[in-house]
Simulated assay, not measured.
Amino acid sequence: MMRELFVHDRSVMTPQKSIFQRPVWVTVFALTAAIAWGWAYPLIKLGFGEFGITPDMTGSKMLFAGIRFCISGLIILSIAGVTKREFKVRERSDWWYILLFCMLNTTLHYAFFYFGLSHSEGSRAAILNSLSVFSVVIFACLFFKSDRMTANKVIGCVIGFAGIVSLNLGGADSGRFSLLGDGMIILNALCGASASLLIRGLGKRVDVFVGTGYSLAIGGTLLVLPGIFLGGEFPMVTATGCLYLVLLIAISTMGFTLYNKLFTCNPVGKVAIYNSLIPVVGAVTSCLCLDEQFQIKYVIAGALAATGIYIINRSK
């Protein structure tokens, strides 16, 4: 009887987990964000076409990206204001950390992404971007004591990188490495992985919801200004193009809000694993929406990437 009472009392005193820490909801939220981000690949290229933005129009690409993220950030900050979130940053010096996060998470991250995507097939870029998943695993082991390098992680990363390398094998054109295409996507992936490690620190300096809004609004502005300076413009504006832009804004608003919150409540690797779905969705939707030729190497690369991620995250 006393044992039953003890067990009952202990269960009552156990703090209830946040919805963002419950396994089922972590899966639901992370999958929702990953699937939405996968659709960004074809939507960006379709948006460029509707606005008349060609691969050589650097300023216009920065302007397009900046408007997307700036509006997304302002929406998040508006919601934060309505829900009476705390906007105050803990210390003045913390603004330098927030600015660094803005640069990595938004400005540099998406400058590289938009440049690379305009010089590469959406399906190829989507799978190549899976490099960020393995980069997060490696970086987490280097900077977080709670994440230790294991044999599973080494094997998983090797297999995953093999999938990325397989993209550059095959035909003379489709297999050729491009600095403006593949190179920019790789830099984008590394910026995204680095930003993922900073999210937990961001949550210690400001409300993570507000911090996400700051990141997108400030980072977007830092894309708009040089875009205008470089002569960025939209040669034509169509209703369909505006629809694509609205969808991209919605993807950013939902995706970053969910992921940043999940990263502050769970181990980095546990959440990052779901990014492996982004290349799959991106490759398939790009082939469907952009009439890109589907290649068997995409299946091989996707299978190797998924296998590597499974090995890294499987239980002992």
Rank of each mutant, 00 (worst) to 15 (best):
G241I: 08
N275K: 06
F51N: 11
L5G: 00
T240V: 02
M13E: 13
A193I: 10
F64G: 01
I296H: 06
G255M: 04
D173K: 14
K316Y: 07
G220N: 04
F29D: 11
A301G: 07
C191V: 03
Y97W: 15
F87D: 06
L99N: 08
S315C: 00
T27R: 03
V12I: 13
T212E: 05
S123L: 12
S178A: 07
G181N: 04
L216I: 02
D291W: 02
W39R: 06
L245W: 01
S78A: 15
Q16I: 08
I19K: 09
S78W: 08
F48C: 03
L142Y: 07
P55I: 12
A172D: 07
L179M: 13
W37E: 11
Q293D: 14
V206L: 09
S72V: 06
F134I: 05
C70F: 10
K145E: 14
F101A: 12
S72R: 05
V268I: 15
I79F: 13
M62A: 07
K61G: 01
F143M: 12
I300A: 11
I67C: 09
G269N: 15
L245Q: 09
L198I: 08
I228F: 12
L77S: 09
I75Y: 02
F209P: 00
V246C: 14
M254A: 10
M62S: 02
G156M: 08
L288N: 04
A80W: 07
V12L: 14
L131A: 15
G308V: 05
C287V: 15
G231Q: 10
W95H: 14
C70H: 03
L225M: 11
Q293Y: 06
K153Y: 03
G231E: 05
N152S: 10
S215M: 14
L222V: 01
S118W: 09
V137W: 00
T212R: 01
C102I: 10
G282K: 08
L230N: 02
S18N: 13
G227W: 01
Y259D: 13
L243C: 04
M62T: 00
M184H: 00
M57K: 11
Y114D: 01
G308Y: 04
M2S: 10
V208S: 08
N168M: 15
T107K: 02
G181F: 02
G171Y: 03
L202I: 14
V133D: 05
I296Y: 12
L216N: 07
D173M: 07
P42S: 09
I164W: 12
L243T: 06
V89S: 11
G160D: 10
S123W: 05
L131P: 01
C141P: 06
R200G: 08
K297A: 05
R3I: 04
W25Y: 15
I186M: 12
F69Q: 05
H8D: 10
V26R: 06
N168S: 13
A126V: 06
G231V: 07
